[in-house]
Design a protein around this nucleic acid. Structure first.
Length: 322
DNA sequence: ATCGCTTGACCGGAAGT
DNA sequence: ACTTCCGGTCAAGCGAT
């Protein structure tokens, strides 16, 4: 996050018009008795000065809070980057032997293979590239909690045990989206091809099924569905690990309605190029890329007017009204 | 012509009896 | 063991480019 940006934002001044003219606009002529004015002026100036001091104090306190918030964020960001680097190194070492399986290969075997790979290879949490106008939070599902969400079956039965195995490589992404937006598109920086849609039992909103279309050998799938409780929230459930680096940024910003697929068509990445990229991409670059994603998330958050409004209201709730 | 999306059909696993 | 239910996937048809 850009600390300077946050500190320097005039919109964070909470709209307080400190020391500004009150009542009559400047230049307005007021015809009143001079004595009355002078005595009243003194009181008014004192009151204004007191208020100015109070507001200034308040402003300083808020700035301190903001600085503390930014510091904590930077600290967390550092930790996240470190964890991602470690997880990514692990990921790289365990996926090098994975070859491209043909689409017609028996699904059962592919599933068991990928499950086996996953058990050896706990996936790093997927993070969202900040799509403008949206903010997202990424959550890696812990096995114990994986099936206690509205999107899953109740927490009993054999299915839970099966899911516990799966959950080790399942992560969730919660994306705030306009309820009027019927597209179940979560822009996470990767390219997806939709292969199915289904209305599930526990949620009237349809669930869309996507698979990664950037690399033919990539087995990652994702399900996107509106939250049953909050229609403004899209829940993306990722299944598996990408065996390739995220597409370049210029490809991520597709122009069409379905930007993910459009990006594929606009500049399809040849397999050779992908392999070269995989070999050449140093760990440092990948860490930097993930760091960028985190920064984009944060930037999206701070630029979101709704978030700002919520922050302001939350802060102002702690300020005693004069 | 090519590609992705839509949607009904199908499959397979889990639950119920 | 059989039936039912349901999530996940396939694939034909269609529209967009």
């Amino acid at each position: 996050m850009d600390e300077q940006w946050m500190i320097g934002q005039t919109s964070l001044s909470l709209g307080l018009n400190v020391g500004g003219p009150r009542g009559a606009p400047p230049g307005t002529r007021v015809l009143v008795e001079e004595d009355f004015m002078s005595s009243k002026k003194n009181h008014e100036v004192e009151a204004l000065e007191a208020e100015l001091r109070r507001v200034g104090e308040e402003n300083r306190r808020l700035s301190d809070m903001l600085r503390a918030l930014v510091a904590k964020y930077a600290d967390l960001q550092g930790k996240v980057s470190g964890m991602m680097a470690v997880a990514n190194n692990h990921h790289q070492s365990s996926t090098t032997s994975e070859g491209g399986s043909s689409a017609s290969a028996t699904r059962k075997r592919a599933r068991s293979d990928s499950l086996d790979t996953a058990s050896r290879n706990p996936s790093p949490p997927l993070t969202a590239a900040g799509a403008s106008g949206r903010f997202a939070v990424s959550v890696t599902v812990v096995p114990d909690q994986a099936d206690c969400t509205p999107l899953h079956q109740p927490c009993n039965s054999k299915r839970v045990r099966a899911d516990e195995v799966k959950a080790s490589r399942v992560s969730k992404l919660y994306v705030h989206a306009d309820p009027s937006d019927i597209n179940l598109v979560v822009k996470d920086g990767y390219q997806w091809r939709k292969y199915g849609q289904k209305v599930t039992k526990d949620n009237p909103c349809p669930r869309a099924y996507f698979r990664c279309s950037f690399a033919p050998s990539c087995q990652v799938k994702k399900k996107v569905q509106r939250s049953a409780e909050d229609k403004t929230v899209l829940v993306a459930t990722y299944d598996g690990d990408h065996n390739h680096a995220p597409p370049p940024k210029q490809q991520r910003s597709g122009g069409r309605k379905s930007g993910d697929a459009a990006a594929v068509r606009a500049s399809p990445a040849p397999v050779i190029v992908q392999q070269q990229r995989k070999q050449e991409a140093s760990t440092a670059e990948q860490v930097a890329d993930r760091k960028n994603l985190v920064e984009q998330m944060a930037a999206t958050l701070t630029r979101d007017p709704g978030f700002k409004a919520a922050l302001v209201s939350a802060l102002s709730g702690r300020i005693p009204v004069a």
